[in-house]
């Protein structure tokens, strides 16, 4: 039974700003009067290691961890990490995957393996070179997370409007980071993959 909860997995490696993304989404959810819970990992995993974090929102949310196969959306900020979110995915899941790879020690997997693994689960997957795009268009790849948020808003993949997210960014991030993140959201809105 798929509950009415919205479930998002963000996968990546330590240092990619996953926790900040979660905080923005959690703030936006609270401001809309929704229940929300996140499950995060701090610590050892931050030193470039695998990190997966969960956020769930809706009218009633119990477990901070998403039950298997119930993610509505997976955002993988590192391509190989998308595979670690697979247990939470089903045919109804959308994958947004950053075409960026952080090296693993000799046990990495190829882009083609990842593509076939993901498309074997769901028809809804998008691969974007967010690091390159943001580096080129906005001068800094640290906003690749916000780029995916903007992209997800435009495609209706998260239950928030552009305004919800922008307001939440202002509450969560220090003022000096507002400008570039707002610009990133605006840019992502009009971005069309070629």
């Amino acid at each position: 039974m798929q509950s009415k909860t919205f479930n998002l997995v963000i996968a990546g490696v330590g240092g990619q700003g996953l926790i900040t993304l979660l905080q923005v989404l959690a703030q936006a959810a609270m401001d809309k009067g929704l229940e929300v819970r996140t499950s995060e990992l701090h610590g050892l995993s931050q030193r470039g290691g695998s990190v997966s974090v969960h956020i769930r929102l809706g009218e009633k949310v119990y477990s901070p961890m998403i039950p298997k196969r119930q993610a509505n959306l997976v955002i993988a900020l590192e391509m190989q990490e998308a595979l670690n979110a697979v247990p939470f995915a089903s045919g109804r899941t959308t994958f947004l995957i950053n075409k960026y790879q952080s090296p693993t020690m000799g046990q990495g997997v190829s882009e083609s393996y990842i593509k076939s693994a993901i498309t074997g689960i769901t028809k809804k997957s998008v691969f974007l070179s967010a690091n390159e795009i943001t580096e080129k268009e906005l001068g800094n790849s640290v906003v690749s997370g916000s780029f995916f948020l903007g992209y997800a808003i435009t495609k209706g993949l998260i239950p928030f409007t552009e305004n919800d997210i922008k307001e939440a960014i202002k509450k969560v991030m220090p003022e000096k980071h507002w400008d570039i993140n707002m610009k990133t959201i605006d840019f992502a809105k009009q971005y069309h993959e070629k």
Partner: peptide, 30 residues
């Protein structure tokens, strides 16, 4: 859920996926 299913005499299967998992081990910062 699997334990409760056993308690209640219901069916519940934990769905394991066969997809390879990738482990980025933590390392000294670069």
């Amino acid at each position: 859920a699997s334990a409760i299913a056993k308690l209640a005499g219901k069916k519940f299967k934990i769905l394991e996926s066969r997809t390879k998992r990738v482990k980025h081990l933590p390392r000294f910062c670069t």
